[in-house]
């Protein structure tokens, strides 16, 4: 940064009416607090007096991103909480109608709705199947992939292909595979469930969980593959010298070695589960049969947008997020183990 460019970029801040830049500058006061008072000092080498740091243009470079975060993420986040505590309804743009504060009414409406309770139960079923399956399969496959040198690229690509493909597209083929007289039931013959997978109230949610596990596994394999690179080879070497077999090595070196990744994988799998929408909407035709595979987000869509009760839907969203946080904390305790 040359001396000449400094005043020009400094001017950005005063007339920069965007709340993002100034908010950042305010809350970051700890960075450049030392004002020596020699503001007019002739020595350009001393960067200390500059109120916005050595390269104030950084504020300008960050401004679009900050604006995006504040306008599209932070503000709606607060707005969600606001909506959930008010009697909120859709109005035509520009029309101002009082939307009174109603306390916890929306939350009570959510928690006393049997459909909501059912959807949370469904998510629990989903998590119980999806999370252990995801962790176990992705770790085992990543471990095998890590040892193979030939065909490695082929395997890796084939694993993440489902992850990069649109859910709507692969749901099409799952519907075809799992329909009443689909290929899966043809293969199973007389063992085929009756009624079929996606219209069976006992099997609908497990099938959704299986689908999501299959769809997301490639991403988690890549995460584990990265974590496996961090385990020092010497550990395996000395374990082998001490006579530990493959199984012992896997259980005592690999599993503890990738524990941080496991925490991340369980967390991300839980968030995915809480976000289920496309699968119950399309795979089981709107959370069927009879609500056996509804998800909270699907109910948010139904109550909030189809039935025009955004306040109740927002309250459901807040409760859902709190629930995810609680589950994430419990998982962290369980998976994080001794290191915590």
């Amino acid at each position: 940064m040359s001396w000449m460019t400094l005043p020009r970029s400094k001017r950005v801040q005063p007339d920069g009416s965007d709340p993002a830049g100034s908010a950042a500058a305010d809350s970051a006061g700890r960075h450049g607090g030392s004002s020596d008072g020699n503001a007019g000092g002739p020595a350009p080498r001393k960067p200390r007096w500059r109120p916005l740091g050595a390269q104030p243009v950084g504020v300008l470079f960050s401004a679009p991103y900050l604006l995006f975060v504040l306008a599209v993420l932070a503000y709606p986040l607060g707005y969600a909480v606001y909506i959930s505590f008010h009697d909120f309804f859709f109005t035509a743009p520009g029309v101002s109608v009082p939307k009174p504060f109603v306390g916890f009414d929306n939350y009570i409406a959510v928690l006393t709705d049997p459909a909501v309770i059912r959807s949370f139960g469904n998510i629990l079923i989903f998590l119980v199947i999806n999370v252990p399956l995801t962790v176990a399969l992705s770790l085992v496959l990543a471990n095998a992939l890590n040892r193979v040198t030939r065909l490695r690229t082929f395997f890796r690509v084939s694993y993440y292909v489902p992850y990069v493909t649109a859910s709507v597209a692969v749901i099409g083929v799952w519907l075809f595979l799992f329909q009443q007289n689909g290929l899966i039931n043809s293969l199973l013959g007389s063992l085929a469930p009756e009624p079929s997978w996606l219209v069976n109230s006992w099997l609908a949610m497990p099938t959704v969980a299986l689908y999501v596990t299959w769809k997301q596994l490639g991403f988690f394999i890549l995460l584990y593959l990265a974590a496996l690179q961090n385990i020092p080879e010497e550990l395996y070497e000395s374990a082998a010298v001490d006579g530990a077999n493959k199984w012992n090595q896997f259980w005592n070196i690999t599993v503890p070695g990738v524990r941080p990744a496991s925490v991340l994988v369980t967390l991300l799998a839980t968030i995915t589960g809480a976000n289920l929408f496309t699968e119950p909407y399309l795979l089981t035709a709107g959370g069927g049969p009879d609500g056996a595979s509804t998800s909270p987000v699907f109910l948010m869509y139904r109550t909030g947008i189809l039935q025009g009760n955004p306040d109740i839907a927002a309250a459901l969203g807040v409760i859902l997020v709190i629930g995810v946080l609680l589950i994430a904390l419990i998982q962290r305790r369980l998976v994080g183990g001794k290191e915590e």
Binding site: A24, H31, G53, A54, V57, G58, V59, S62, L66
Partner: peptide, 20 residues
Amino acid sequence: FGLLVGYALAQLSFRGRGVV
């Protein structure tokens, strides 16, 4: 916008970098 803010975060020293 990602290149701008990514570059600022990595190579520029300015007030508020930690917050961003």
